[in-house]
């Protein structure tokens, strides 16, 4: 490391003439934006989410069209190309949830959180900036991917004349609703990460809350299941990402999503309290 020796005699003072600013929420937002995109793992996760969201629907549609004649008349009659159009969320939500946890748990596991909190010692601006940046990125990417998926699916299913236009009732709502659900999920998972401060714990909590709870509910007596399951995070959250429901046990489209946002806010609030209270 011969380059190092030459660095010794330099003045340490800043030669930049810029005036000394203070920490601002905007500055912390910029910082979080840089942090999000400067990790390879983040870029891969976002790419995985995008590709799943954009590609899974068309893939399923293509398979279904190939087997169209083998499908039962009932299935053909109720075929919902809008639901298939946003079907990619079933896969993409995993990537978004895991990344949401990692956005903050990754800082705890590496010690980066200490640098972050030394730069913004009031702490809450860090959490807020993480949420805003991650939510904005998730919403934008998922909206673009859902639109791609939607139009690709409609083009594919035209061969059997079951396509929908984006102007059809509920179509645009479902596409935008899918991005909203994914965004809410991302925020929920950032909250879980802040609460549990640990990647394994955060991901376990995310998977348990979203996917294990409905499984447990399903093995309960069905009357109980029917009254409970609609309030579970996954079922409440995906109302807004669903065009036609395959059973009557669900909340209203926006009511369900509002409840889901409530869960996300609760996770964020608990995460915020943890961030403020505990030693870094």
């Amino acid at each position: 490391m011969s380059a190092i020796a030459s660095a010794e005699q330099r003045p340490l003072r800043s030669t930049s003439q810029t005036q000394r600013g203070r920490v601002t929420q905007l500055g912390v937002l910029r910082s979080e934006w840089t942090k999000l995109w400067s990790l390879r793992s983040t870029r891969w996760s976002l790419l995985a989410a995008f590709v799943s969201m954009a590609g899974l629907g068309p893939l399923i549609a293509a398979v279904q069209m190939g087997r169209w004649l083998q499908m039962s008349p009932g299935d053909r009659l109720t075929y919902d190309s809008i639901n298939i159009g946003v079907g990619g969320y079933h896969l993409a939500q995993l990537a978004i949830g895991v990344l949401g946890v990692l956005v903050i748990s990754g800082e705890y596991s590496t010690g980066m959180i200490r640098s972050s909190l030394m730069a913004a010692p009031t702490r809450l601006p860090v959490l807020l900036a993480k949420i805003v940046v991650f939510a904005a990125v998730t919403f934008t990417l998922m909206l673009i991917a859902s639109l791609i998926s939607f139009f690709a699916v409609q083009a594919i299913v035209t061969q059997h004349h079951v396509q929908h236009a984006i102007g059809d009732p509920g179509a645009l709502r479902t596409v935008i609703g899918t991005s909203l659900y994914m965004t809410g999920l991302g925020v929920l998972c950032v909250g879980l990460g802040a609460l549990l401060r640990n990647t394994a714990g955060g991901i376990t909590a995310f998977v348990a809350l979203l996917f294990v709870l409905p499984g447990i509910s399903a093995i309960l007596p069905s009357s109980l299941d029917h009254s409970i399951s609609k309030y579970l995070p996954l079922n409440a959250g995906t109302t807004v990402a669903t065009h036609q429901f395959d059973n009557p046990y669900h909340l209203g489209v926006w009511g369900g999503f509002a409840l889901f946002c409530g869960y996300a806010l609760l996770a964020v609030a608990l995460g915020a309290v943890t961030l403020l209270r505990r030693d870094a």
């Binding site: 810029t18 600013g21 500055g27 840089t34 400067s38 990790l39 590496t110 980066m112 640098s115």
Partner: peptide, 25 residues
């Protein structure tokens, strides 16, 4: 107190941005 996956430059840049410190510094 550094994320292992981030480059030194991006780490410092992210720190700098919180205070509006420029890339030159």
């Amino acid at each position: 107190a550094i994320h292992t996956g981030r480059s030194a430059y991006n780490h410092l840049l992210a720190m700098a941005q919180t205070h509006g410190i420029g890339r030159r510094r």
